[in-house]
């Protein structure tokens, strides 16, 4: 029997005014946040990593009203974080988390969902890690990306943090995924 399929509710933009609803404490609104950029509230020690970056528009200007969500699950640790780009003086985002473990020989990564004014649909990308050279070289998803674009989804380890800039368009356009 053919089941009746319901039509998806259409997506609409997050708009410019999400901050007091979705990231209120980060933006100093008088409402408690459910979640923020600190994904490791109960974790201490040297396994904690920092991921920071800037989201750039098609003219190379930093976007100051984007919101990112990080979702990760390696079977052992499920983590979720959220951060808006409107509070840092450089419009950077910062997350602290732990690096996921590889699953089934694939390179470890973190899912990113990106929202902003000017996006009617959110975008999906992934954060891979520059210090996972061997696993990155054999990872099926990374290998399906044209080689010259592959590094757009690899966060670069710089000192103690990973840097992951996102370019919406242009020569350095980040790879976005169809999910």
């Amino acid at each position: 029997m053919k089941e009746k399929i319901q039509l998806q509710t259409p997506s609409q933009t997050i708009g410019p005014y999400f901050a007091y609803g979705l990231t209120p404490e980060q933006y100093n609104y008088d409402f408690p946040s459910l979640v923020d950029g600190n994904m490791v509230k109960n974790v201490h020690g040297n396994e904690v990593i920092t991921i920071t970056g800037i989201v750039y528009d098609g003219h190379g200007n930093p976007i100051d009203d984007a919101m990112l969500e990080l979702w990760q699950n390696d079977g052992e640790h499920k983590r979720f974080g959220r951060y808006g780009t409107g509070t840092d003086k450089n419009n950077a985002f910062t997350f602290t988390t732990i690096k996921p473990k590889p699953i089934d020989g694939n390179a470890p990564f973190i899912n990113v969902i990106l929202f902003m004014r000017g996006q009617l649909l959110h975008s999906y990308t992934r954060i891979y890690f520059s210090d996972e050279v061997a696993l990155n070289a054999t990872d099926e998803t990374l290998r399906s990306i044209p080689e010259e674009r592959r590094e757009t989804v690899v966060a670069k380890k710089e000192g103690e943090s990973y840097v992951f800039n996102i370019h919406m368009q242009g020569d350095k356009e980040t790879v976005f995924f169809k999910l």
Partner: peptide
């Protein structure tokens, strides 16, 4: 506002992953 913010290159289909089933707790 979509003009400078819409991805311009084709989207890529990733390999399915356990991580895709991750929701917030």
């Amino acid at each position: 506002s979509t003009i400078l913010r819409a991805p311009s290159k084709p989207l890529i289909m990733p390999k399915k992953s356990l991580s895709d089933t991750t929701g917030p707790l």
